[in-house]
Amino acid sequence: MSELYIGVMSGTSMDGVDIALCEIDASHCSLIASAEFKFDSEVKAEILEMINGSTTLKQVGTIDNKLGNIFADAINAFIKKESIDAKSITAIGLHGQTLWHAPDAEFGFSMQLGDANVVSAKTEIQVVADFRRMDIANGGQGAPFAPAFHQEIFKHLSKKTAVLNIGGMANITILGEELKGWDTGCGNVLMDYWSSVHIDKNYDKDALFALSGEVKEELLESFLEDEYFTKLPPKSTGREYFNPTWLSNHLPLFDTIKAEDIQRTLLELTAKSIANDANNTGAELLIVCGGGAKNPLLMQRLHELCKAEVKVSDEFGVSREYMEAMAFAWLAYKRVHREVVELSSVTGATKDSILGGVYG
């Protein structure tokens, strides 16, 4: 019997809150309705300041509550817009906003904020959240989680398939008898940062800024020499690693390289780091989703650099924009039914786990 779930995702880029209403049963997950709600710019600035600088316990608690209200208000607006009976929703799968991801630390953790109690109270729907920490408790990376969902919805494909999600970070899934996946590194995060500084835009729409520059090979080589790109999976990353400080450490010629050339080189970094990993998998088909799939120059470079046939997920009936939100609706279904999520081969955990806590 199918049930209705809402998935909520705000990624590393913090450009919006994605909401997906899904109909889910034991063998299917179908997108019924979806919407994106603009992320609060002041809260985004606060979060970036916390990540890139110092913070206090008061700020952490305040942001947790603010994000809970942002998510709840977006869900309620979505429910009203789509004329949904809230009582028909079994649960909300809430990823939360990642502030810090450090599974490899001496005391490993991953912090996603957005108080699920606030969301449940304001929507009057039970919420499933805190998906990552059980996997980390069992020795895993707690990321990426999308591969389990990719396996579920693309398992019918006959070709050797890889699925690529390009958000703030980029992650790749290798489908097969043993599921594999990892973060390839930075997706849009450094390009978005550079655009915000130099053209006062949250992102480089249609890659126009990057198209005005050229790749600086010496700088690209410096980027690609970073140890993360040669580290073997399981591995995952986030803004705590790929951030303005990381970029400035690789810009010894900062004053002599044009801003547009740096933007173009950052795009090439994303494309090459992805292609290097994809080409090593032997995949025949690479299915792309996420915000980066809308970047025409990035997609062009993936077509040129990857050995596999490159297609967007929409060509297989799955929205490239709402894939991750759908994934967390599906993960909520798995938690409500107390089903183990098979991710240990991806994250390196000692065992597969039931993921997430239920609120409300």
Rank of each mutant, 00 (worst) to 15 (best):
Q126A: 11
H198P: 02
T184E: 00
R132W: 04
E3M: 07
E49Q: 15
F316Y: 15
D204I: 06
M1Y: 09
Q141P: 13
H150T: 04
F145Q: 01
L175K: 00
V341F: 05
E268S: 15
Y203A: 10
L343I: 14
G139P: 12
S353W: 05
K258S: 15
D192V: 07
K311Q: 15
A162G: 13
V358T: 11
V336C: 11
I166G: 08
T265C: 06
E240M: 10
T98M: 06
K231N: 11
E324A: 05
D64G: 07
I257G: 06
T62K: 14
A33D: 12
L157N: 07
Q300C: 07
K351Q: 14
R335M: 02
F229I: 03
G282A: 09
R301G: 03
T98I: 09
L251E: 10
G11K: 04
G290F: 06
K231P: 02
V215K: 15
A116Q: 03
F254A: 13
A45C: 06
L305W: 08
I354Q: 04
I166P: 07
G114V: 08
A137R: 07
L219E: 03
G96P: 09
L4G: 01
K122L: 15
P234A: 10
H95M: 06
S195D: 10
L232P: 05
I6V: 11
H28R: 12
K122W: 06
F145H: 01
A137M: 11
V189E: 01
G96V: 09
G317I: 03
V346I: 01
T55P: 12
I70L: 15
A327H: 07
G93S: 09
Q59H: 12
D200S: 13
D314Q: 07
L285V: 08
L305S: 12
M169P: 00
E217A: 14
D192N: 13
N76Y: 01
D226E: 11
V189P: 00
Q126P: 15
N65S: 15
A26W: 00
A329W: 02
G290T: 03
E3F: 10
E152L: 14
D206A: 13
T256Y: 10
K258Y: 11
